[in-house]
Amino acid sequence: MSLPVGTPATPAAIASTTPPRTAERRTGRLLRVALPLVVLVVLAAVPLFVAPFGTSTLSRILIFALFAVSLDLLVGVTGLPSLGHAAYFGVGAYAAGLVAIHWTAEGVVPVLVAAAAGAVAAGATGWLAVRSGGVYFLMLTLAIGELVHQLAQSLASVTGGSNGLYGIPTVRIGGTPLTLPGYVYWFVLAVTGLGYLGLHLVASSPFGGVLRGIRDNEPRMRSLGYSPFRYKFAAFVIAGGFAGLAGGLFAAQVRLVTPSEAGFTTSALVLLAVILGGAGSLWGPILGAAVVVLVRDALGPDLDGHGPLLLGIVFVLAVYVLPRGFAGLRDLLRRRPSPGETP
């Protein structure tokens, strides 16, 4: 939920915004710097006020959000809708869990190993996947995801099979275990914050510009001398790395990794979070992820277990009410500033 520092405007956003007056532009810039800071401060203060369950729910939202934003780099920025992104999340989670159990639970070590493992797994499979496009890409990534899921299930001696990888120790910072949910939350907040920042830097770099170019008109980029395959592959590996990072945080926070972390349901939910939030904006998916996790974990149990029903209704309504996801809301707000808003 921390907003990006200096959000890069997507081409669509540029196209739909009329040239703003200077005052408005200044407000806009101020808002862009101030809002993320305010949100960050609020988020950092959460453990001081909110009870443990709320705090750990928020931790899960942050992790799922980082995962969703990493997918947005593929779906929204590069135009590659993946239905197997959970494979790399799962690989990262298992890697972090194994490192924490067998080697060290010291702070960032398992998490960085997770990111590396996610990137390596994405590299090993991505060269196959990015050769196709559209729905075929969707299905090929689905197949990769299911195969990874099945491997996690079958390699019981390493992964614990369907019982999951359990007994993951608490995260340590400087040798001190973080036993309280509030401290774990701060750890998660710090790493996800850096993760978002990293993804935004990638998306707003010239490299990100080329990815958007490929998304919008691949033949043109090819004729300009770019190799779409190499760029798509690089995007796939980077997205896999950040998904692995999120997976590593998941292992640290939940302390149990099961094959379903790499499976179809996780992949589908994260893709829906991206669409719900607004693909390509890099911040919309954060809200999409928040809705998905809140409905499933916080509201679901109070609905007699009919969380999926509510989720289904949310999806259907969102398609009509929020044509461009939550990200579309910002343009609405911008075009019609409410009277109460300070200029």
């Binding site: 453990p47 006020f49 009870a51 443990p52 401290y183």
Partner: peptide, 9 residues
């Protein structure tokens, strides 16, 4: 859900 006042105790 915040009834206990914080998650640091």
């Amino acid at each position: 859900s915040a009834c206990g006042g914080g998650s640091l105790g």
